[in-house]
Design a protein around this nucleic acid. Structure first.
Lengths: 110, 110
DNA sequence: TGTGTATATGTCACATATGACATAACTTGC
DNA sequence: GCAAGTTATGTCATATGTGACATATACACA
């Protein structure tokens, strides 16, 4: 959120905090969630770049379409193990995974 | 393994393959295992740098000493989730985690 | 020798993640 | 409109990870 925007909201009586404050998450919890979301986002991007459907990727992973959908949606029932396994299954290297974790999720639109 | 060493072993009748070939792992499986081992190694290093015992770290994580020991040993019963959670719990940043995954485990001695 | 502290290993009841399946909600093209 | 293809959502039995606990091993230092 831009500084100016925040100021304006607060002037208007809003109590403005970032998502972390709002949910009462610690730094660790937040970093963990960010990591998961970044990986989830990366799975979708990489799968699409490979021109695979969720069902096709699922087959390649020995999983199911619904689980791939949950993965990409960042569903809390999906583990980091599955996310990272999926990326490697999509041909990602350790360098790729490192970059994803470092840089976080891409913005949805410009 | 150095090229010369390998040649000599093969000349002596050894069938020489790297660990990956030996276990029959795919590239993905291997990358995943390397990732886990790198994180396991990093947890131990970081815990020791923080001068914490396994029991102390366990308490901080809401886990147990035995699980921390298994984590650091790279036990297959430990998930990536717990490893990464532990690193964040030890104060690691996303950049730190990315570096660990990128660079892999440190050599045990120089 | 023992005594304390740290780590390793094994087991178990319980929690969570999993693939599978069904089905709903979108897209895209006709 | 209506299909066909793709993705989202919900449920469930079972597989896997979990903390707790006991106990073994290791390494100090008296």
């Amino acid at each position: 959120m831009k500084r100016g925007t925040r100021d304006r909201l607060e002037a208007a009586g809003w109590r403005v905090g970032d998502v972390q404050e709002f949910l009462g998450l610690t730094d660790e919890e937040w970093a963990f969630i960010e990591t998961k979301l970044a990986l989830a986002d990366a799975v979708r991007r990489r799968r699409q770049r490979c021109r695979l459907t969720q069902a096709e990727l699922a087959k390649r992973l020995g999983s199911s379409q619904s689980r791939v959908a949950k993965m990409e949606a960042g569903d809390p029932s999906v583990s980091l193990d599955l996310l990272i396994r999926s990326l490697y299954g999509l041909g990602a290297t350790k360098e790729d995974v490192a970059r994803i974790i470092r840089q976080g999720a891409r913005r949805s639109a410009a």
